[in-house]
């Protein structure tokens, strides 16, 4: 039996992309971006600050890092909580040492449960990016437009109420979106999202309700990918980030400002045996004259796309 004839039909086989979210664009053929003060590499640190209910949801999917054992999974519930209580404060201290302002992608549940953590973030000059409600708040096609809209608004409203300002950025759990997500984010007033990993600089994303920026948060460079999924040592992680920086800095001399995203997780990077190496990486980057430690909103504004 043959395949359905439509399987050999290609209605979107045309110049450019097979969708209308953004146009095809080669990173190396764009107008160069000039970062403030002539800096060459924007180092964008984004910390995921998450609360995992001990009763996990599998609809539409179970979030990475969520509960594993049969109920009650004390092991993972508490190990994730360790990140918020201990690891995150190690990270805050590490950022303070080098004067880095960072983005914190926080679940609304963090604001509801631990407003003091939000106050500490704001007081340190960091940015809060909306990161869903809690780690049961995953998004994928099939959850329904109304449910997704409510989830997005609840996250933004809660974080705004506790932090005092409305988040400009959005980061979905596991970077997972539905076809509706970008439009719903525009309708909710979000300026930028951090989910599409197809680029290394911010670019404009179009929906029927208007446009927003996608600020690519490279998952390949994340602590989850390198330390947890690929199981490399933290020393290897530091070497890989250093190699990446070296490459990006070299490109910046020909092609304009580049960006190195460091996506870190308190319960992964904030452990005693890893944090020293991460602090050494930050100190090394801070010592390089081309480094601009910057929040996501600052990068979006400076890029002017």
């Amino acid at each position: 039996m043959a395949l359905d004839p439509c399987y050999l039909e290609y209605p979107k086989r045309r110049h450019g992309m097979d969708h209308d979210f953004y146009p095809w664009s080669n990173l190396f053929e764009r107008k160069p971006i000039a970062w403030p003060d002539g800096k060459s590499v924007a180092v964008w640190i984004l910390v995921n600050l998450e609360w995992f209910p001990i009763v996990p949801e599998d609809k539409p999917f179970r979030a990475p890092g969520h509960m594993v054992t049969p109920y009650p999974d004390y092991r993972h519930y508490t190990a994730r909580d360790y990140g918020t209580r201990i690891g995150f404060y190690r990270l805050l201290d590490a950022f303070a040492k080098v004067g880095a302002k960072v983005s914190v992608a926080a679940n609304a549940a963090i604001a509801e449960r631990y407003p003091s953590v939000i106050a500490d973030i704001v007081a340190a000059g960091h940015e809060i990016v909306a990161h869903s409600t809690d780690m049961n708040g995953t998004i994928a096609t099939g959850i329904g437009e109304e449910a997704e809209r409510a989830l997005i608004l609840r996250s933004l409203d809660t974080l705004e109420r506790v932090a005092g300002t409305r988040p400009r950025g959005w980061h979905s759990i596991a970077r997972s979106q539905s076809f509706d997500t970008p439009r719903l984010l525009v309708e909710a007033g979000v300026d930028y999202m951090c989910d599409w990993v197809n680029d290394e600089l911010p670019y404009r994303f179009t929906t029927s309700a208007g446009s927003l920026i996608n600020l690519p948060l490279n998952h390949e460079l994340s602590d989850r990918q390198i330390l947890v999924n690929q199981q490399h040592s933290v020393d290897s992680y530091v070497e890989q980030m250093t190699d990446a920086y070296t490459l990006l800095e070299a490109e910046s001399t020909r092609f304009g400002g580049r960006m190195l995203p460091l996506n870190v997780t308190p319960y992964i990077m904030g452990l005693p045996y890893r944090i020293d190496a991460f602090e050494r990486l930050l100190a090394d980057l801070a010592a390089r004259p081309g480094t601009w430690f910057a929040r996501g909103d600052s990068i979006v504004d400076a890029a002017g796309v």
């Binding site: 999917f61 096609t141 539905s178 076809f179 989910d195 990993v197 690519p216």
Partner: peptide, 12 residues
């Protein structure tokens, strides 16, 4: 492996 759009798979 995910419902379309598989954002990370496609964007990668």
């Amino acid at each position: 492996t995910k419902p379309h759009p598989d954002v990370v798979g496609y964007a990668h």
